[in-house]
């Protein structure tokens, strides 16, 4: 991990409820510069909601979110836009713009947010595509790409503006194990070589142990534990052990109890 531990994201006592149900319940955590923090939890544990709060797409009911030292819950739209140029996001479905080619997708943030010449943008797009290993695919439409390639193009677009943080929402969703490993390697490479801070939301434990510096375990909107890979692996928490090992028996119950079943059938 880094020696200085400069904090880039700080979340304090975040609470969010939808229709009276608390999806995030008093979540506090910090992300340090150039580390890879992985937020892990089952479906519906609130991890995607947490991510959407950090990128300013959702407003919390209470609590604070500091991004680059600024409390984004108080920012105006144009102030938030300024911060948005400093991070990139890879969406679960890659979210490439269907009507634009791969090249145009990657060039879009450059064309809109910089005064760079078109020649320079062309060169940059090639460099970004090469970084994700997709040189020569620029002229294709997103519909012509496989799922893994779409994600890599999404990543190339996310790094177009040389962000300081990249957010990944379920980077391995819908990918086979080999392609998942490829994407995981890209996440590590970007974090390592360019010392970009990465925040990854996932439920894929194989990925987690490959990419994480630190892990946040989330369950039903609450933080169970924050720790390094080893601390999480050796955790005494029964929920965490059940999740890591993927067992059915444990404190998380997925089946309705047997009592009352026969009565309900014969009623």
């Amino acid at each position: 991990m880094t020696d200085k531990m400069e904090t880039v994201i700080k979340i304090e006592n975040l609470v969010k409820a939808f229709d009276g149900r608390r999806v995030l319940d008093d979540v506090s955590l910090e992300v340090y510069k150039s580390e890879t923090l992985v937020i892990v939890g089952g479906s519906g544990c609130g991890k995607s909601t947490l991510l959407r709060h950090i990128i300013g797409q959702l407003r919390p009911d209470s609590g604070k979110i500091q991004l680059f030292g600024e409390d984004i819950t108080r920012l105006k739209e144009n102030q938030m836009d300024r911060l948005k140029k400093r991070f990139g996001m890879l969406f679960q479905s890659a979210a490439l713009f269907d009507s634009l080619t791969v090249e145009e997708n990657i060039a879009l943030p450059l064309r809109e947010h910089t005064k760079l010449d078109e020649h320079i943008i062309k060169i940059m797009v090639k460099m970004k595509l090469n970084q994700v290993g997709l040189r020569g695919f620029g002229h294709l439409m997103p519909s012509q790409l496989s799922g893994g390639m779409r994600k890599r193009v999404g990543l190339a677009r996310a790094i177009a503006l040389d962000p300081e943080i990249i957010f990944y929402d379920e980077p391995s969703a819908g990918l086979d194990p080999v392609v998942t490993a490829v994407v995981d390697k890209l996440i590590r490479d970007l974090g390592g070589a360019l010392s970009i801070t990465s925040v990854v939301v996932t439920h894929d434990m194989n990925s987690v142990f490959r990419i994480a510096d630190r892990i946040v375990m989330l369950y039903k909107g609450k933080v169970l534990q924050i720790g390094t890979k080893d601390e999480i692996r050796n955790s005494k928490n029964e929920y965490i052990q059940q999740f890591i090992n993927g067992t059915i028996e444990g404190p998380m119950q997925f089946f309705a109890p047997d009592e009352g079943y026969l009565e309900e059938l014969t009623k």
Partner: peptide
């Protein structure tokens, strides 16, 4: 609508567009 459900609208917003 398709752009919305495939996160493309959100992608625009996170790119400050």
């Amino acid at each position: 609508g398709t752009m919305k459900v495939t996160e493309q609208i959100e992608a625009l917003e996170t790119m400050a567009l």
